Computed example of a mutant assay.
Amino acid sequence: MRRRITAALLAAAVATLSACTAAPVHDKTDTKLIGLGREAIHVGIAYDHAGRGDKSFNDAAGQGIDRAKKDLLVQATEVTTKSEDDEGRSAALRELVQAGSNPIIAVGFLYAGAVKTVAAEHPDRLFAIIDDDSVQAKNVVSLIFAEEQGSFLVGVAAALASKSGRVGFIGGVDVPVIRKFWAGYEAGAKSVDSSIRVDSRFLTKPPDFSGFGSPDKGKAAAAAMIDDGADVVYSAAGGSGQGSFEAVAAAQGVWAIGVDSDQYASAEGKVKSRILTSMLKRVDNGVFQEIQAFIKGDRSGGVRRYDLKVDGLGYATSNPAIKKYVSGMEKARFRILSGAEKVPTS
Rank of each mutant, 00 (worst) to 15 (best):
Gly108Tyr: 03
Gly108Gln: 03
Gly108Val: 03
Gly108Glu: 00
Phe109Gln: 07
Phe109Gly: 09
Leu110Trp: 10
Leu110Gln: 15
Leu110Cys: 08
Tyr111Thr: 05
Tyr111Asp: 07
Ala112Ile: 00
Gly113Glu: 06
Gly113Gln: 03
Ala114Thr: 03
Ala114Leu: 02
Val115Ser: 09
Val115Ile: 11
Val115Gly: 07
Val115Lys: 00
Val115Met: 08
Lys116Phe: 11
Lys116Ala: 15
Lys116Cys: 00
Thr117Gln: 14
Val118Met: 07
Val118Tyr: 03
Ala119Glu: 09
Ala120Trp: 07
Ala120Ile: 08
Pro123His: 03
Pro123Phe: 12
Asp124Ile: 01
Asp124Thr: 00
Asp124Phe: 06
Asp124Tyr: 12
Arg125Tyr: 11
Arg125Phe: 08
Arg125Leu: 11
Arg125Cys: 06
Arg125Glu: 00
Leu126His: 12
Leu126Ala: 09
Leu126Gln: 14
Phe127Leu: 06
Ala128Tyr: 09
Ala128Glu: 08
Ala128Gln: 04
Ile129Val: 13
Ile129Glu: 12
Ile129Tyr: 06
Ile130Asp: 04
Ile130Ala: 04
Ile130Asn: 07
Ile130Gln: 01
Asp131Ile: 01
Asp131Pro: 05
Asp131Ser: 10
Asp131Asn: 07
Asp131Met: 08
Asp132Tyr: 12
Asp132Trp: 10
Asp133His: 10
Asp133Glu: 14
Asp133Pro: 00
Asp133Val: 04
Ser134Phe: 09
Ser134Glu: 09
Ser134Tyr: 11
Ser134Met: 07
Val135Pro: 10
Val135Asp: 02
Val135Tyr: 09
Gln136Ala: 14
Gln136Asn: 14
Gln136Met: 12
Ala137Glu: 05
Ala137Arg: 13
Lys138Glu: 15
Lys138Thr: 10
Asn139Ala: 03
Asn139His: 11
Asn139Trp: 12
Asn139Glu: 10
Ser142Asn: 14
Leu143Pro: 01
Leu143Val: 03
Leu143Lys: 08
Leu143Ser: 00
Ile144Tyr: 02
Ile144Pro: 05
Ile144Thr: 01
Ile144Phe: 06
Phe145Glu: 08
Phe145Gln: 13
Glu147Thr: 10
Glu148Ser: 08
Gln149Gly: 09
Gly150Cys: 12
Gly150Glu: 13
